[in-house]
Each structure stands twice: as structure tokens, then as C-alpha cells.
Write a protein that binds this DNA or RNA. Sequence first.
DNA 1: TTGTATGCGTTATCAC
DNA 2: GTGATAACGCATACAA
Lengths: 344, 344
Amino acid sequence: MAKKQNVTFSDIAKYTNFSKTTISRYFNNPDSLTLENQQIISDALIKLNYQENKVARILANGKTEFVGIIVPNLYLHYYSEILNQILLTYEEFGYKFLVFIGNENEEIERQYIRELMAYKIEGLIILSHTIPSRELADLKVPIVTIEREDTYVSSVNTDNYMGGIQAVSLLAKHGCDVLIHINTPTPESVPAYGRIRGFEDFCRDHQLPHEVFLRNLGQHYEEDQRTLQEILSILEEKYQGKKKGIFVTNDTHANTLLNLLIRRYGKLPPDYYIIGFDNSPVSQEAVFPISTIGQQIDKISHEAVRLLVEQMNEQKKRKPAPLTEPVHKVIAPVLLRRYTTERE
Amino acid sequence: MAKKQNVTFSDIAKYTNFSKTTISRYFNNPDSLTLENQQIISDALIKLNYQENKVARILANGKTEFVGIIVPNLYLHYYSEILNQILLTYEEFGYKFLVFIGNENEEIERQYIRELMAYKIEGLIILSHTIPSRELADLKVPIVTIEREDTYVSSVNTDNYMGGIQAVSLLAKHGCDVLIHINTPTPESVPAYGRIRGFEDFCRDHQLPHEVFLRNLGQHYEEDQRTLQEILSILEEKYQGKKKGIFVTNDTHANTLLNLLIRRYGKLPPDYYIIGFDNSPVSQEAVFPISTIGQQIDKISHEAVRLLVEQMNEQKKRKPAPLTEPVHKVIAPVLLRRYTTERE
DNA sequence: TTGTATGCGTTATCAC
DNA sequence: GTGATAACGCATACAA
């Protein structure tokens, strides 16, 4: 028996002696049919083995239910977990996600965006840092960014400033003699800069001895390790005998630092207090669980999609009233005390 | 000035005094136009600010260039890295990816697949374990699975058997008195079962004392830690004074085991040799770098997409000749010797 | 409650 | 090298 082409509304209409319109209505507004006729069509669908075609539907009604996502990478747990949580919102909102990895290349990312636009995405979520928000705002699509420069577009970010305060104040409360912050050089326009500001403001306000190390980290593990070892050597010499409270800007680097100490001393020496940021798995799975400022990734992701859905729904109205001002949502971080600050 | 609707081929045709057909050709077969006319159209596109609409193109020519992916989760680095590598193949092959998180729920995953089919995906990559390959094979789409039961569908897997052999033979070469394998209960149909077989075959063939522990791992870190601690207690008692070579089925658990030893002894005791599996970041970032059997995730992912593209291209021919037999590709793992086996 | 006619934006077929 | 016309499969205004 020759393989038939795809079954369409026409076939079903012919088979059931209804019109295509009625078949369409069966899917989009079943209540407008009699129960009896619903049953007839329902049976026909099974008999003919109908497979719906959403592409045709898109062309007809303009709603793709596609959302584009551009992530810098999935190597960092933070990004993969954000993506994880975003994808899970399909259950709640029904949007399908077209995902691209950013490549850190502006021109390539522009091409990705063009491609996404060609597929008529209804909204866009951006985590990569390359394209300025000024440019993103010009795209005629609702946009939400997460933890990146967001002057001209809506966004969801962790309250990094509060996180910085929480971290350093915990260290201060434990009576550390000197407060250290280790971070990478961060532009002030990036939300994560708030961690540095929070740290510095707190120390200044409370007149506490402190020092900030800004070094390029995050390229390769071995390199990061060397960089952190250098910082450690400086600390050992400069603050010998003092109780050192170290706020590291993420758990991965906090873990590297912890490991350097353990390799040297077989334990975490009593004059070191460490706290990281993110609550990524490594903070729990370290030899000694690392205190950290936990980002609520589930909330961030959910809020980002919710915000986007809101704007996408607005677009679907007869007379859409797009946002006049970008909306910036801020999610509070959570302080998690673990061994590296609470071991006495 | 009123916002115009989307610019279409009609508008361009009108503007340039060509027909829609010619505009279409400009995109799909530019060489069939004179250079002069190409220029005219090219200018018009810019002047009118044309944005291409691939949805309409899909409806007309049937090629969506969509590939569906179902991953169990992105929490495990293995999965997120596979996804990462798969997404990167966009550069090479141009396929767009619609990604779903599997949820470990058969019925939900079936719904995801229906949704993907409704969007006329050209191919499907499956990493989740819930739906039997027998059922997957019935979908009228090219399919490739990765590291899961694959009896009736094409697949790409690591050579787990060889990996098991490599791991245990390294431990044996170091003169371990007893060889231990820690794993979760694994059905024989899952490729990862090869690790157990490799371990057992090697030990049997060389008549080496050995023991396999099959325990439920991978739920929660604390629980895994308890389970591994129990195993450790057994080993300490049963094989006291003996040189123990332990092959753990993944790096995460190998790291947990290592941490338990370090917390107790402040170092890795000389009678313990440990090797993991996967070469995930944690194996490098552990206090002492963990030897491991590295999965070549880049190769696995690339090969999976390549295999899929091959089948998708076949489908596009006038008279497609689908595979009569599923193809099973196997990627060799790589032995990585690090501190936990090489520290003397 | 159901049907008719038309449109969505592109590609394919067949002419010229 | 270019054009007219008919698909592709569904949704929607309007009519009945």
C-alpha cells in the first residue's frame, strides 16, 4: 500500500462530510460543535491517523509560540541551570525554546538573532554579554536579559549588591581582622558589579580593613589556580597571624582557593574564613562545604519567562501597548552558612 | 507614520517591477539573475527593510531545519556539555534545535515528542531513558540516541566496555591487591553496563580479587555521601592493610569518595587508588586531581549530529532509502592519569 | 452550529 | 532569464 501524504483538514473534512472550517473549530473551539459531531471527528482523526501541523497554523494565525535564547555557554553550571529552569517553564506557559550558544562573538550572535527573527520568535531571552542592550532594544520583539548589561531592556537579576553585603557582613560578624574580596575586573554596567560595590560600601561604612583583588579568572583551571595561589601568597605574608575573611565572587574559584589551602595544610586553617557566590553544586561537594550567597536560579528563570510572557501577551492584543520603560526585576540572594565560615 | 505590516516578496516585487518568483530566486538561486538585477533587488531589500520569513518557506518547501532534543536534565555536567556541543553544530550544519527536558516521565515525554512532530522536526536526538527504543523507531523521523538503550534505533555511545577495562587495568598495573567497582544497578541494555562487564571480565580473566558494589547513587549529595561512607567502612575493615584500587562509575562520586578520605586523613592515604569516569570538571577541580576515563563529549555530539544529518539528507531525496538496520557508533574513551593513581 | 471565501508568505511547476 | 499560477495546511471574517 502506497504511503499517503500527510493527512490534512481537507481529508478529514471529506471523510466526515464536514467543512475544513468545522475541523479547525474542533481543535480551536470544540465547544461550538455538538458533542456528537466532536465524537465523529475525534474518531476520524484516529482512523486517518491525523498529525497536526503547527507550521501551517503559524502561517495562518501568526503565533509561533517560539522563544529564542542565547546563552554564552553551558560549561558554567550557572548558565546550564538557568537554561534548565527556563526550559521547564514549557509546562506552565507552553512556549517552545530555540537555543543558541553565544560564542562571545558579536557578529555571530547578530546572525543568530536574525535567524531567530526569521522563525518569528515571539520573545527573546539573552544571557550573553556581547550585544549592547541599546541595540537589543531596537529589535521589534519583547526581550528579557539575565545578569548582563540591561540599560535599555527589561531584565531579571540577582540583587548582587545585597549579596555582597551579606557575604562581607557574615565575615565581619565572625570577627575577621581583614576582609578580602576576589573578583574579575567587572564593568559597572554589569549587574555583578554590585558584589564589589556591596563589599566596598560595607567595609567603608564600618571602617574595616579590607582589600580587593581584581584578576582575570575563569579561563582555565590551571591558570586560575596559579592566580589564586599568587593572591594567597600575598595574603599569607601581608596578613600573617590575622584572621582573614575572603569573599570570592563565585563558588568555583572559592573551591579552588579552598583546595590550595587543604593541599598545603591538610585542612582549612583556623585563620581563614571563606564565602563564595552562586550556590553551585561544587560549593556543597567541596571537601568542606563552602558557605555561599545562593542565587535563586529557579526564581530568576521563572520570573524572566513570566516577564517575557506578559510582554508577549501584550503584543497579541489588538492595540498593543509595549512597555515604555524597561522593567528591572531583582531577586534576593540567600545566605548559606556552611563549614568554611562556621567550623568552630 | 503608520506602522506597516511585514514586508513580503509581493512588496519587493511591486517595488522592483519583478515578479514574486524572481524575488524568490534571488534568495534561492541568485545566479539565475543578472548581476544588475541582483543589485536592484538587493537595494530594494534594504530600502524596504525586508525581514525573511522562514515559516512561510517551511510551509512551501517542507524543510524546517528543526531538530528536536530531549535531555533528562541539565543538572549533570555530562548532559549540559553534550547539549552544548550539539548546539554548536549549528555552525556546521545549520540545524536549529528545539530542546526539552525529559522529566523522567514517559507520558510527558510522549507529549513533547508529539509537539516536536507537530513542528515538523526533521530529526530527533534522545538522551533520556524513559521511552523504549522500540517505540522511538516507529516515529517517522530519523533518530539518534546517546548513551541509552538503543536496540531499535541508531546511536552514538562511548565504548564503555573498553573504558571499564582501561580503568581496572590501570589499577591492576599499580599492583592493587583488591579491585573494587562502585556503580548503580544498571540494566544490561544500557550502554553504561559495559563498564561493569569490562571490570568483571578483566578481573576474571586475570584472576584478580575483586568486588562490585551496586548501590543507588545520584539522588542527593548527602545521601550519596552516606552510601559511599558505608562502602568505605566495609572496605576499611575487609581489606585492611591491602592496597585498594577503586573504579567509581563517575567523577562526581569518585570526588565524593575522595573527599570522605581527605576529611578523615587530611590526605589521600597511600593504600587507596581511585579512578573515575567522564572527565567532568570536578575531576580536575578536586583537591587532588582524579584519574578518570574521559568521555570525548565533543566527538560523541558531533558524530550524533553527523549521523542524524546523513539520515535527514536521505529523507530529502526523491526516493529515500531509510536505514534498514540501526547504526551504532562507538567512541573510544581516553585514559587520563592524575594524582589519585599516580602520586608516588 | 456550520459553511464559504480569502489570506498567511513562500516555493514549485510550467510556461515563455 | 523571467513570470503567472497553483500549491503548502490552517485560521478567520462573514454569511447562513
